[in-house]
Write a protein that binds this DNA or RNA. Structure first.
Lengths: 124, 124
DNA sequence: TAGGGTCTTCTACACCTGTAGCAGACGCGC
DNA sequence: GCGCGTCTGCTACAGGTGTAGAAGACCCTA
């Protein structure tokens, strides 16, 4: 599942809310976007078509909810990036992260701490 | 500089070679793509237009070379991903990397090692 | 010097994404 | 019962991307 830029915005809002109407999402995204209402609707329809969200009718109003988890989406996106830009392997990404990015001492400490804890959050 | 999927393929080949003709790139990418020669040329022209590569005429043949570094491109791409998918911060990415991805013991060890070395490769 | 191969530039087209208008349905308050 | 606001579905269009054909320029070899 490839998500476009605008689709990520919507998915992020949806994950925060759990489920929402187009109007609610549009409100949440005020500040990030200045979409017309119909723009949001169009994107949501397309996303429902391709299976990124589920659409459920409540009266004559559509309520949307995520059809893929944030974790899945993140995995897809990360792997896509790694394939395109980091020779398809974690190593080069790690190297880049540690050597090229301005990881503050805090980030580095957090990373070290995370590395020490074995395999949290892997239940699936 | 946003690079599309195909553009990444070309840039990766270009970074490996330093500089190359369309024909050479196409040869390098056999296996990854089955582009017609003119497809590669079209992409290269567009990339020259938008400043991702430089084009230099050698006789009647164009030789291309990267106009942005792999490091820059990786930074852009990584930051784009973080903004779209990881709440715009390194923390969530790190968390995801360590907790959700199948980092082998080797990757984890390498990461730990990298973290210990203070700031390599940061001269700019 | 003519044919074949290769290179170039120009042009084209389909799909995806961002963006939105329009028209019709529906419900609520006066 | 009517008008207003809101929702829905449908349609449209422009820019980016993937993909490539056509036609002309150039050079090597028979």
């Amino acid at each position: 599942m490839q998500l476009s830029d605008g689709e990520w915005k919507i998915m992020n809002a949806l994950w925060r809310r759990g489920s929402a109407t187009a109007r609610e999402l549009l409100d949440d995204l005020r500040g990030e976007t200045a979409w017309a209402y119909t723009t949001a609707k169009t994107m949501l329809s397309r996303m429902a078509e391709k299976g990124a969200v589920r659409e459920r009718k409540q009266g004559n109003v559509s309520v949307y909810e995520p059809a893929l988890s944030q974790r899945q989406a993140r995995r897809f996106a990360l792997h896509g990036l790694i394939d395109r830009a980091f020779d398809g392997a974690f190593g080069p990404l790690m190297q880049h992260l540690v050597a090229e990015e301005r990881l503050g001492a805090k980030d580095r400490a957090a990373l070290r701490r995370m590395l020490r804890e074995p395999r949290r959050g892997r239940q699936r």
